[in-house]
Design a protein around this nucleic acid. Structure first.
Length: 923
RNA sequence: GGACGCUUAGCUCAGUUGGGAGAGCAUCGCCCUUACAAGGCGAGGGUCACUGGUUCAAGUCCAGUAGCGUCCACCA
């Protein structure tokens, strides 16, 4: 084995072996365990969030597979309507064309070509993360069977009246020319203005001043509203306004919605271009005057001078024209929330169009019940509040999109505009008895991508067929996803799955935090702080990294700054840390908090952990290869250390499994790390040396220790495998022939997870070794602080040795001698004089290292002073506590007892330290 | 306006029924000891944001303040 761990050399071939051997498939035996991969966009490439969530899913999948469950990780990708269409359209733009030049059919064909060529990027990258989903079951949301499910759901919901078509005000993206749902609109606060405009009364008796943030919409005004109890305008309600520029007559109406305190207390009402005005328009039966085109330009409803102007151009002209007519009163600065499309960033326009909707109210109720009843559980639990809040205020879902890429809506129109919904045209003709003379044209629109995503839990398992998979794996065990798509996806899956299968889609919902950069900023192209998980795995040099971060930018002017910062942060680029280190980092950072600031130091630390495992394994192999490890029987005597590490491992295993059951991946990772490094490597491996390198050891002792050594390592590898699949597989293949494992050893991933075994728990041994450790650390501490070389053998004297101390010394003598590097141990009789010494205290026992020629007086006095101060502080705190009568009478007996023994301990120690101080001081 | 969350060592973060403040990285000292210098051994470092309350006892529970963040709704 090489001296350092080189992840590159093993990962990819290891993965190929796993995948080719079909090891990711559900075994068909054991309790079902299923995870659904939130399907990433087929256009996408792996980002840190994917890496994080997939690590968690893979840990769970590999763990449950090893536990013997019938484990399925269902994988697939999403067609991502808008995102994908935009990517391909951008390519066309680069060729100087647009999608209309190609026409719908050719454009969609082009997207399929693009998908065939580049759509596999993200699934290839998932493989680099070491994920183990059943790739043979990979689905794409536009596959035939998924599309069938989509049609089926649409038709059934329509039959029940839960899908309807209606003319409503929708969020319109004027760049994409499509409606989008409420969730796809982001409201950001931006600096704007409030224009105060004078509207004259038609009878010439005066005027009103309205305040607006969108003057151009005045072309579509159909009323002015005031509060019914606003005395200022009491006499005006019912009168007419002569709307400037257009000359139209519009009424002054009264409505509670108006806030008399805000602005002038008069609101211009534009029902076709504002959601609140739309509602008021309906209440007052006002005309809906649409003054915009699909491009958000002024249409022919407006006076000629404005027609064809962009909405923002029109705004300027209208303000100028009003000003010249002395109708502009003032312009105030005003902060307002501007709605923008989450994909395009374009200002969204409330726009009156025909769209398809899902009436969600009746679907929402069972979905709320499913969480309230505890059938579905959010982890962490407080996310259910977010869920309830949205579900209780849920609005009908606009599902039609004026795009070309997606599931075509299964609705047909005849020439009279009648609508027929069915699974296909033939079915429609049959059910509605339409012969060939009736011309039918299919609805041009496609469905919101999230409509098909909502069916993911059952459609991927074969629905509407009654498949065995559906029977076995629905509901799935846990959904691992981010809070950002609780509304988009999670809630809709619950509604749809309940509706169409009667079952819940999943039992637990584990909500992960968002991965941010080290200072808490969101990773984004424009900030230039994006890390690519693949770069952390393979490494990247600084030039390539700078190039990556600064190319293809929306705002090229930021490039220089980003380049500079990147060079500053990564002067030598990013090292290749390997997949296992990255995965371990993700797992270790998966605490319950909302956001995670990604710290490169952690990755480096866990890369070092990989190296530690690697070198510990080298040590184990060096000492077991070609030796008798007891694999074929033979007498074995286990040392104290052997028993101890087995017991310690049991403790670790218990904590580890509990943590995983609680979805505390950070605790599980920490537990495994601590055991492996601080117990197994730092102590146990050192404790095997006195046995293996001791000429006096019997063959049974050597065999026992070798046996423990190799099998302990083997168990650790299985423990760590769910987190670090590659390094554990690589080492395990070398270890297993020496271990006690028999049978099929094709891969560690098919081995059982280490079993909890009460026979190996041993409190006595744990206590004994803790005592030994304190003994050794006491002497190391003296060496460290006294600058005594670790190589220099010392003579130790012991004072106040109890019977138990003596037994322990006998049991552990070889270990103590070797690890503390002692030449001799002398037990002093009661009252026997000791030479001037440095001291360590273990319980009641004192360890004395004679100072002659070794230790200087001042240094030892300083050390003792430090120890005395610390002990005195403890002592007086505990003493104060016990002196408090209220504490003694109120606290539980166990707590008081603990404090009493603490006090006693401190008192004894203090006495010894002070005595020692006096002795040294007298020299 | 409503909801949720965060504030603990220089940095990134744990701290689960209230009962001795922890980890990794960074820092300092010693050590190339035959698994590992991506390492070993040892050490230093915190008025747990602030104020008040409950309690014998508060990082932990309650109330409030300040700062930061997220989501939802929204006044033109």
């Amino acid at each position: 084995m090489d001296k350092t761990f080189e992840p590159q050399s093993i990962e990819q071939q290891c993965y190929q072996k796993w995948e080719a051997s079909g090891m990711f498939k559900a075994s068909g035996e054991g309790d079902p365990y299923c995870i659904l991969l939130p399907p990433p966009n087929v256009t996408g490439s792996l980002h840190m969030g994917h890496g994080f969530q997939q690590t968690i899913m893979d840990v769970l999948t590999r763990y449950h597979r090893m536990k013997g469950d019938n484990t399925l990780w269902q994988v697939g990708t999403d067609h991502a309507g808008i995102a994908t269409q935009m990517v391909v359209e951008r390519q066309l733009n680069a060729e100087g064309k647009n999608r209309h030049d190609l026409g719908r059919e050719d454009f969609v064909k082009k997207i399929w070509e693009w998908k065939a060529q580049s759509g596999g990027t993200i699934t290839q990258q998932m493989r680099r993360m070491g994920t183990s989903p059943d790739w043979d079951r990979e689905v794409f949301t536009m596959d035939d069977n998924l599309s069938e499910a989509v049609t089926e759901v649409f038709v059934k919901l329509h039959e029940e009246g839960l899908i309807y078509r209606g003319k409503r005000l929708v969020n319109w993206d004027p760049v994409l020319h499509t409606a989008v749902s409420d969730l796809e609109v982001l409201n950001e606060e931006e600096a704007g203005h409030m224009w105060h405009m004078r509207y004259p009364l038609a009878d010439g008796s005066g005027d009103l001043v309205v305040a607006t943030t969108r003057p151009e919409t005045m072309l579509g005004d159909s009323a002015v509203a005031v509060h019914p109890e606003d005395e200022r305008y009491a006499g005006m309600v019912g009168k007419q306004i002569k709307l400037p520029i257009t000359g139209r007559l519009i009424p002054i109406i009264a409505d509670d919605y108006v806030d008399p305190e805000f602005g002038t207390g008069c609101v211009k009402i534009t029902p076709a271009h504002d959601f609140n005005d739309y509602e008021m328009g309906k209440r007052h039966d006002l005309p809906m005057i649409n003054v915009l085109t699909a491009d958000a330009k002024i249409n022919d409803e407006a006076p000629e001078a404005y027609r064809g102007m962009d909405r923002f151009e029109a705004r300027k002209k209208i303000v100028a024209d009003l000003d010249s007519q002395r109708l502009l009163v003032k312009i105030d600065d005003h902060k307002l929330k501007v709605p923008r499309g989450d994909r395009t960033g374009a200002v969204i326009e409330p726009f009156l169009t025909d769209q398809w909707y899902v009436a969600v109210e009746s679907l929402a109720k069972p979905a709320i019940d499913a969480v309230e009843s505890g059938d579905i559980r959010f982890v962490p639990e407080n996310w259910n509040k977010t869920y309830y809040q949205w579900m209780h205020n849920i609005q009908d879902w606009c599902i039609s999109r004026q795009l070309w890429w997606g599931h075509r809506i299964p609705a047909w129109y005849d020439n009279d505009g009648n609508i027929f919904v069915g699974r296909n045209e033939a079915e429609v003709r049959k059910t509605h008895k339409l012969d060939d003379t009736v011309v039918l044209t299919q609805d041009e629109d496609v469905l919101d991508t999230w409509f098909s995503s909502a069916l993911w839990p059952f459609a991927t398992l074969g629905w509407p067929e009654k498949t065995e998979e559906l029977e076995t794996f629905l509901p799935s065990s846990v959904l691992v996803t981010g809070f950002d798509i609780i509304f988009f996806w999670v809630a809709r899956m619950i509604m749809m799955t309940k509706k169409f299968t009667g079952k819940i889609p999943f039992k637990d919902i584990y909500i992960t935090g968002l991965i941010r950069d080290e200072s808490g900023d969101k990773m984004s192209k424009s900030k230039g702080n994006v890390l690519d998980p693949i770069d952390l795995i393979d490494g990247i040099d600084i030039e390539a990294l700078v190039n990556k971060r600064t190319s293809g930018m929306m705002q090229p002017q930021l490039a220089e700054k980003i380049a500079k910062r990147t060079r500053q942060q990564f002067p030598d680029g990013i090292q290749a840390y390997g997949t296992d280190a990255l995965r371990f980092t993700f797992a270790a950072m998966a605490s319950t908090s909302r956001d995670i600031n990604f710290d490169m130091g952690r990755v480096e630390g866990y890369r070092n952990f990989c190296n530690k495992i690697w070198n510990a394994s080298r040590f184990v192999l060096m000492n077991t290869e070609g030796e008798d490890t007891g694999r074929d029987g033979g007498e074995m005597t286990l040392s104290l250390a052997d028993h101890w590490i087995l017991a310690k491992f049991q403790q670790t295993l218990q904590e580890f499994e509990q943590a995983l059951a609680d979805y505390r991946f950070d605790i599980a990772a920490q537990t495994a790390y601590e055991f492996t490094w601080n117990q197994f490597c730092d102590w146990y491996l050192e404790l095997t040396k006195p046995v293996l390198n001791n000429e006096e050891s019997t063959e049974a002792q050597r065999r026992g220790t070798r046996h423990t050594l190799i099998n302990m390592l083997e168990s650790i590898l299985r423990l760590l495998h769910p987190f670090m699949p590659f390094i554990t597989e690589e080492i395990w293949q070398k270890v297993v022939p020496l271990s006690a494992i028999r049978g099929d050893t094709q891969s560690i991933m098919l081995q059982p997870f280490p079993a909890q075994d009460t026979a190996q728990q041993n409190e006595q041994v744990l206590a004994d070794v803790e005592w030994v450790k304190r003994f050794i650390v006491g002497i190391r501490n003296i060496r460290g602080e006294m600058d005594i070389s670790p190589n220099k053998p010392l003579d130790a004297m012991l004072r106040n040795v109890s019977e138990q101390d003596s037994i322990r010394i006998d049991k552990a003598r070889v270990f103590i001698d070797r690890l503390a590097r002692l030449d001799s141990i002398t037990v002093l009789a009661n009252g026997e004089q000791a030479p001037a010494s440095a001291t360590a205290i273990v319980g009641d026992m004192e360890i004395l290292i004679p100072m002659a020629g070794l230790i200087d007086k001042e240094a030892e006095l300083a050390r003792l002073t430090k120890a005395i101060e610390k002990t005195e502080k403890d002592f007086s705190r505990v003493q104060g506590k016990l002196a408090n009568e209220k504490f003694v009478s109120n606290a539980p007996e166990a707590v008081i007892e603990k404090e009493r023994s603490k006090l006693e301990e401190a008192e004894k120690q203090l006495a010894k330290l002070k005595e020692q101080f006096a002795t040294i001081n007298a020299l």
